Computed example of a mutant assay.
Amino acid sequence: MQFPKNAKGRSFSLAYYNQRSKSGIVYRRNWLCCSPTLNVAYCEPCWVFGDRTQGSLNWVNGFNDWGHISRSMTKHESSNNHLSACLIYNKWKSDQVLDTDLDKTLKFKTKYWIKVLERVINVILTLAKNNVSFRGDNESLYDGDHNRGNFLNIIELLSIYDPVLKELLSKDKKCVKYLSPTIQNEIINLFSQ
């Protein structure tokens, strides 16, 4: 891979990714990253988890003094800020706590809302196929025993037997439920197209 050269003709080299210890063992610098587009090298753990209030920010914002990179890498590798960032980074990579929890929550919510929409669509299709009116005098689930209309009455009836709809109707008044006349009309229009 070709890296851009600076004014002195120097550039980043793939050889920088490997380090030879005093005992002759070659190991990979897993922390080192290079952006050919920006023409800088940086430390991924420090970029993600580093303390930006102390130490040199060269390896966070990008390092491009190619004439002094070897000495700077050695100094950076032994800094407390780098070591702390690497510990946090490795813990994060091994546990995947942030991504895994967020992903599980997102998948759970997505499945829940798909189930809600399936039920709402089925009620809408049933009413539409049978040419039955949807709305009543008062289209609120929270205003007593007024005529809510067939759509909301069927949703309410199904909620007695269906835990998904039961949970939906138990949500706070201000929460999204996908039961409004606007949503009903949108779904009808989508199916008509």
Rank of each mutant, 00 (worst) to 15 (best):
N122I: 02
K93E: 09
N122L: 06
S140C: 08
T105K: 15
F63R: 04
N6A: 12
V120N: 06
L117M: 12
P36L: 06
S78P: 06
K91C: 13
I124T: 04
S84T: 11
S133D: 11
V40M: 05
Y27T: 03
L102W: 12
F63V: 00
Q54Y: 09
E77W: 07
C46K: 01
W47A: 12
P45I: 00
K129G: 15
W47P: 00
T110A: 11
A85V: 05
E139C: 05
N130G: 03
P45V: 00
V97M: 13
H68N: 13
C43N: 00
S84A: 10
L102K: 14
T37D: 07
L106P: 02
D65Y: 09
I121D: 08
T53C: 11
L125F: 12
N122M: 12
S78E: 12
R28F: 07
T37W: 03
E139N: 13
D65K: 09
S133F: 07
S84M: 07
S78H: 10
S56V: 06
N6Y: 08
V60P: 01
K22D: 10
V26Q: 02
V97F: 15
A7G: 05
C34K: 01
D101M: 14
S56M: 01
M73N: 03
T126V: 11
I69P: 11
I114K: 14
T53M: 11
A7E: 10
Q19L: 02
L14F: 02
D99P: 02
S133I: 08
G55D: 02
A128R: 12
I114R: 10
Q54K: 13
T53W: 08
G50Y: 02
D99W: 11
S56K: 04
N90R: 04
S13N: 09
S35A: 09
L98T: 07
I69M: 15
Y27I: 00
Y17H: 01
N30Q: 07
K8W: 11
M1H: 13
A128Q: 13
L117I: 06
S35Y: 10
A15W: 04
I88G: 05
P4V: 07
D99V: 11
H82P: 05
S79C: 05
T53N: 14
K8N: 15
N138M: 01
D137R: 10
F108Q: 11
Q96C: 09
Y17C: 00
S133R: 14
C33D: 00
H76R: 03
M1D: 08
W66T: 05
G50R: 01
V132T: 11
N18S: 14
T105D: 13
K22G: 01
A15Q: 01
F108S: 12
L32P: 01
C33I: 00
K115Y: 04
L87S: 13
I124S: 07
K75C: 03
V48F: 07
C86K: 08
C34Y: 15
A15M: 03
T105G: 15
